[in-house]
Design a protein around this nucleic acid. Structure first.
Lengths: 169, 169
DNA sequence: AAGATACGTCAATATGGCTGTCCCATCTCC
DNA sequence: GGAGATGGGACAGCCATATTGACGTATCTT
């Protein structure tokens, strides 16, 4: 049996021991980038008496028409009660409508009304402007890297759900 | 004088009119990436009866020892009252201590106690693990792109502040 | 001495989460 | 056909985190 070779004096840096600086930079940019993007639509939302939670629901319903309640719950990862309030507000403002499922009539299929589509599109335009400007300044290769890193931040068990959002585009 | 050439039938796509798909992908990855990273430390925080707001303050104080209250307020972009509660909680748990400024004694300079440093380091380790794994999976060029895009999302007037965090690293 | 600035604090309110509990309609499976 | 599982709704109360507004005190600047 061979004698194990001694550990190298200067082992190759493991990716798990990246310099602290690089990690902190990511944490900070993610914090500022996310919060600033989010805040950019607060005013428009407030004009309708809505908040960020409403936008998130609106966004994912726009993204996947005929989404069910339980699918939306998985995406948002909040409780049924929290989502209930949000959906009630959106229905009361005639932005979202529901129909019962054809295969399973217990399900409720969520859709935006015409009004809801217009409102979501207005909010999306603000997001598009911010993101498109950032994409353009960074260049296409950077955008790919941006996506790759963010994908890596999503726990493996959630990736299928995220990927499913892209499927019919 | 030359006759102007007609507009091309298929103009190059302007960065401001990126395909909706690419923008939505960014919005979604940012949402999932940010929220998942954030949630990854909730349990540890909860063990100490603290929340995310406390972590944010702790993080930036760790990052810039002797930060003043008003500097921290600018970074977090919350009100004095909101921050006050958070800092009181952190002081009560002996994680943060303050001294008055030497040049200007009205200022309070914020620092972590030894206990605070240890706690912040523990939280940072969790963030490091997540981010380092994502960085490693994506590759170094991707990390650069990730940073570039996020920088572009920060409003111009805030960039100096973000850059200042990196200055002494 | 007057005014501006840095920080603290009291009070009330909004938003968006949470737990726990109970309910109804419908589907599935024996 | 009946039992149990599942999809969704609702009531009640609570917590964390943010807000606005007003006021107070110490200190710096001029």
């Amino acid at each position: 049996m061979a004698v194990p070779s001694p550990a190298p004096a200067t082992p190759a840096a493991s990716p798990l021991f990246l310099r602290e600086h690089e990690v902190r930079r990511g944490v900070e940019l993610l914090f500022f980038g996310y919060t600033r993007l989010t805040r950019s639509i607060d005013e428009v939302l407030a004009e309708h008496g809505l908040g960020r939670a409403h936008h998130r629901a609106l966004y994912f319903i726009a993204r996947q028409p005929d989404l069910t309640i339980s699918e939306l719950l998985k995406i948002l990862a909040i409780t049924k009660q929290s989502l209930g309030r949000v959906l009630n507000d959106l229905s009361a403002r005639n932005l979202v409508e529901t129909r019962s499922g054809s295969a399973d009539r217990r399900q409720k299929l969520l859709r935006l009304t015409e009004e809801g589509k217009a409102f979501e599109a207005q909010l999306f335009e603000a997001l598009r402007t911010s993101l498109a400007t950032a994409y353009a300044a960074a260049g296409q290769e950077s955008v790919t890297g941006f996506w790759r890193v963010l994908e890596g931040l999503i726990p493996v068990e959630d990736r299928a759900m995220v990927a499913a959002l892209q499927k019919d585009v």
